[in-house]
Amino acid sequence: MPVRRGHVAPQNTFLDTIIRKFEGQSRKFIIANARVENCAVIYCNDGFCELCGYSRAEVMQRPCTCDFLHGPRTQRRAAAQIAQALLGAEERKVEIAFYRKDGSCFLCLVDVVPVKNEDGAVIMFILNFEVVMEKDMVGSPAHDTNHRGPPTSWLAPGRAKTFRLKLPALLALTARESSVRSGGAGGAGAPGAVVVDVDLTPAAPSSESLALDEVTAMDNHVAGLGPAEERRALVGPGSPPRSAPGQLPSPRAHSLNPDASGSSCSLARTRSRESCASVRRASSADDIEAMRAGVLPPPPRHASTGAMHPLRSGLLNSTSDSDLVRYRTISKIPQITLNFVDLKGDPFLASPTSDREIIAPKIKERTHNVTEKVTQVLSLGADVLPEYKLQAPRIHRWTILHYSPFKAVWDWLILLLVIYTAVFTPYSAAFLLKETEEGPPATECGYACQPLAVVDLIVDIMFIVDILINFRTTYVNANEEVVSHPGRIAVHYFKGWFLIDMVAAIPFDLLI
């Protein structure tokens, strides 16, 4: 008679799926529990143990900040960024110097990925580790590398530091407007667009060049630039800015003055950032001319202004700041037409079709709590990747769950009947059967004279019903998954307890 339990259901295979997918890609990662103190490590794979030199037993239950890997060259700011990422709910990448158990130093890129439950609360953290440099290539500990984003994938490793954006290309926007319009339909740009040429040739750093990471940081200074100062900065030398009595002219307006920039070969870094931020506020060169004239017309309804409409929906549905990093990277690809469009465009503009998908598509409701890094690593669709929660398995109709209350009560009843059979069957065979043979035949009273025979008949009927119930009862397979398919249940029961239950259900007393 089957006594099969499996009270692990309803099970959740999400954690096993993450481990299996990460292991298949030869990654070095740990999984931490966000619900406990210090976000203790609950799993670390073999790749991480080989990377740091510690065994799994030495890593388990330690804080996922990996303070046991810190050393003299470990930056405090990087460690603080990892700790801050564990307090938030967004994906974050941090470069930090770690030390192995043998004392060797290596520069590592740590990717902190939160995993949320159905309520939107962070319950786990996945920390992925990628070695960037070994100890002989690690720089000085005073050099802070965590304020910069990861290198873009479309640049060669040897040319990542030679990417320079020439400031004269930004200063000569109005001069290039006529050349853009003359391109017409034969050019790649839309009317009114501004073409910015980027020099990728390796050259020595000069005062006129600005690194790509500095251009990325310009967006942080746009908020500090007032509207009046932006307007004066875009007017140009024809209309000098008016300053109040006793007030000095704005240095932001002076930063885009061609006369002032041409007199000296070098520009201050602050002026460069502010000038680029001011130019980015204009949607095209037409807006710059309109600002000089004193009238700013409404933005025209053409394809170039609607190019950012799908980007707005993608940004609203993005799951991490990696989408913004990807957008900034692609927006700086050289030799393309940049349409400086305000994100607050007309909502009635139709979304044009684009061959290049900048932001990841909208994630469906079932995966809105899973970050983009987890979705990318697992390579699963929205119909396959579940949320991290207890999910009731989908069972067929008329199927009994093996952990249901009805099955528990039924098993206790069958257990009592088995005990009765084990006690009274030998007793009936030894004593009652002998008395029946010696006594007179009682054929007239039937079952009324033999109450134990009636009980034995009921017990046999219950055993037959138990066999039928076992054909529709779920079970737990070797992978700790609840199986509810009727065919698989029948095959599993035939290979197991079916023969024993059938022999126990045969009414031998009635056959004798």
Rank of each mutant, 00 (worst) to 15 (best):
P150G: 15
Q81I: 09
R181C: 15
R176S: 06
K135D: 08
V295Q: 15
R4Y: 12
G183D: 11
D342K: 07
P258I: 07
G120S: 07
V222R: 05
R76P: 15
A85C: 04
K101M: 01
A244Q: 14
T74N: 01
L51Q: 01
M308H: 05
S178T: 10
D219A: 05
A350S: 12
A223P: 13
V341P: 15
N12W: 10
R20C: 07
P245T: 06
A268L: 11
D119K: 13
A350Q: 07
L170E: 08
E118R: 06
R35K: 06
K364D: 08
D287T: 09
D219W: 06
R292F: 03
L171W: 13
A57M: 12
E365H: 08
R100P: 01
S26Q: 12
P202C: 01
T270I: 08
V122Q: 05
I123F: 06
R328C: 07
G381L: 04
F125Q: 12
G139K: 06
A253H: 14
R326M: 07
P227W: 05
F14Y: 07
R328K: 15
L107D: 07
A83T: 14
C39V: 07
L315N: 15
F125L: 05
A85F: 01
V295E: 15
G236H: 06
K93R: 13
G238P: 05
D342R: 07
L167I: 14
R292G: 14
S313Y: 12
V370R: 09
S209Y: 15
M133G: 14
D355Q: 05
T201H: 14
G189I: 15
P168I: 01
C105L: 10
A303D: 05
L15C: 09
S351H: 15
D119P: 06
V341M: 07
L127K: 01
I126R: 03
V113Q: 07
E289H: 04
A34V: 08
I358L: 07
S250H: 03
L210D: 08
E365T: 11
F348T: 15
V59K: 01
T17V: 14
L15E: 01
A169F: 06
T216A: 10
S320T: 11
E134F: 03
V384A: 04
Q335M: 11
N45C: 04
T353W: 05
A34E: 01
L225K: 05
Y99K: 01
R5S: 09
P347K: 10
T353C: 10
E134P: 10
V196T: 01
G53E: 01
R280W: 09
H368Q: 07
L324H: 14
R271T: 14
G246A: 15
H7G: 07
Y43F: 13
K166W: 07
L343N: 12
C39G: 08
S261V: 13
L338T: 15
E118M: 11
E118I: 06
V132W: 04
A190C: 06
A172F: 01
C64E: 01
G184M: 11
L343H: 15
K344C: 10
I18M: 12
D346H: 03
R73W: 06
K161C: 05
I288K: 07
A188M: 07
T353A: 14
S263W: 15
V132S: 12
R159V: 12
C108Y: 01
D67H: 08
A172C: 05
V374S: 01
F340H: 14
V122R: 07
P2C: 01
K161T: 14
G47I: 01
E357A: 14
V180W: 04
L256T: 05
K344H: 14
A78T: 04
A169M: 05
V370D: 07
G158W: 13
G262L: 07
A78S: 15
R62V: 07
I30K: 01
V295P: 09
R77A: 13
R242W: 15
E357Q: 07
H368R: 12
A190S: 05
D342E: 07
S250G: 10
S263V: 08
T305S: 07
G139R: 14
A293D: 04
A79P: 01
E274D: 15
I42D: 01
I330K: 13
R366I: 12
Y99L: 01
L324Q: 15
N257I: 07
E208Y: 11
T337P: 05
Q25V: 07
D286W: 04
S263T: 06
S283Q: 11
R292V: 07
S250R: 12
G189L: 15
V3K: 07
S379N: 04
E37C: 05
V132D: 15
K161L: 03
A203L: 06
D119T: 09
R27P: 03
F98P: 01
V94M: 01
K362M: 08
N317W: 09
A290M: 15
V384P: 08
C44V: 15
A204W: 11
S209K: 05
A360E: 06
A203M: 14
P114Q: 01
K101D: 01
P310A: 07
Q247F: 15
P300T: 06
L155A: 10
T162V: 07
V112T: 09
E95C: 07
K28W: 01
